[in-house]
Amino acid sequence: MTAPLSETGIIGAQGTLLAAPVIGFAFGWFLERGGLGSAPKLAGQFYFVDLTVFKVMFSALLTAMLGAFWLDFFGVLDLELVYIPETFVLPQAVGGALFGAGFLLGGLCPGTSCVAAAAGRLDGIAVVCGMLAGVFIFNSAFDWIAEFYASTSLGPMTLTNMLGISRGAVVAVIAIAAVAGFTIATRIEDTRS
């Protein structure tokens, strides 16, 4: 195993920090190239007129998921050493719902709002300011939220562990579902335009 480079000691703390703006730059570049800096385009997903968000998001997820699976399989990347976001079922269900409502209202998500703002879109700047306000409100109300915030914790739980089936099987099911989704998305766009 040679990767993650930060965990196997190939790059140090400085190198890790140095990689951050480079990785971010490439991420922002592709978001903008795909048109995800434009709020009406993103919001179009909710009315089935423009499914770019779905296509970009799931082709990205599929690429990273399959890449990580094969690199781990061939012993290049040790997935045990990659940080997996911890699961808190109810906070993530409620947080996801609040986020979805905000996404619909704002038409941009946190990353794409920065891209929109950087391209001169004032609505992007408004989303950025709103996000910061939301975080301040959350922090101010933390005493009341803390118990719920920490509830239904499962730790770094993966679908593989939860379902007790192999990683390859989960990856295959998601890959097939995503490809089916792409086909359906294209049909929907064709009939709506």
Binding site: G95, L98, S113, A133, G134, V135
Partner: peptide
């Protein structure tokens, strides 16, 4: 929308 997303993403 940003406020909702800030709250939701924190949670």
């Amino acid at each position: 929308g940003g406020i909702f997303m800030g709250l939701g993403a924190k949670l």
